[in-house]
Design a protein around this nucleic acid. Structure first.
Lengths: 136, 136
DNA sequence: ATAATAGATGACCTTTACGTAATATTTTTA
DNA sequence: TAAAAATATTACGTAAAGGTCATCTATTAT
């Protein structure tokens, strides 16, 4: 435990905080999404505020359905051009836009399919009603 | 080749028509989504109009992001209660609704994230502008 | 000091939705 | 009818995103 202000945090605590497993965090480092963090003397990983933010960002993107591979693309564009926020942002926007497009498309399809099915069910319902009452 | 009207079709042609592979069709049969179709003398599968419609339906659901497992759930509810359209339809609607809900959520998140990022980029842009012109 | 945790590493396992041979028949075309 | 193309079956391979040991070392609690 650190004596000073809780600047850095260990992997177990971090995982617990974010509701994921340590394996996941190490995996993200393994595939280069997290970049090597600092270690304690014995080799124990420590995560500072920036590391935590980065991980949170990854989780946020993941939640939105962006694959780890796509994030690596982002990271690539980010790493090659270190300080170019002007470069990573458009790339991110591009990926996001692509996703939004796909999702909008899906929504439209879903809405349409749902309508079809509701109509279908109504027709069947009507037919069954007609059969049992035999009015017309 | 059949002498009568092109009632049934073989797997290769069907795959070509739908832009998928024969493997995919056989796989759907393998996991029970397609149910065994009729065969020619030698064992060659043939697909009639209903089979084709069923496959198209599967592809449509898949396109909407519904997993094959979820479709199996649907099929289960369908098979247990053979003629109960009244049973399968609500189940399908339920699955669709769940999907729509998730997708709506994602859209909202994406929209929000995109806004954040656009704003972020604007701020950076402004700062860079401010630095170079040094007006105020 | 010593047991009990927590963390590190390495390696094999899992699921989904097929891809890709390999081999044997069948069907179609020449 | 012989050669070519399509099918069937079996079975192993693949990518994604971690899960699950097993073994070791480091840290923490008693």
């Amino acid at each position: 435990m650190q004596t000073e202000a809780g600047k850095s945090i260990q992997i177990g605590q971090l995982a617990k905080n974010l509701g994921i497993t340590t394996r996941t965090i190490r995996y993200y480092e393994e595939i280069g999404l997290m970049g090597p963090t600092e270690r304690l003397g014995g080799g124990t990983r420590t995560y500072n505020r920036d590391d935590v933010l980065r991980l949170k960002f990854i989780l946020k993107l993941k939640e939105l359905g962006i694959s780890l591979k796509e994030m690596q693309e982002l990271a690539k564009n980010f790493d090659i051009n270190e300080q170019s926020f002007g470069t990573i942002t458009p790339k991110l926007l591009e990926i996001l836009d692509t996703h939004i497009g796909k999702i909008d498309q899906k929504i439209a399809n879903l809405a349409s399919l749902r309508k079809e099915i509701v109509d279908y069910r109504l027709r069947i319902f009507d037919i069954l009603q007609g059969e049992s009452s035999e009015v017309s």
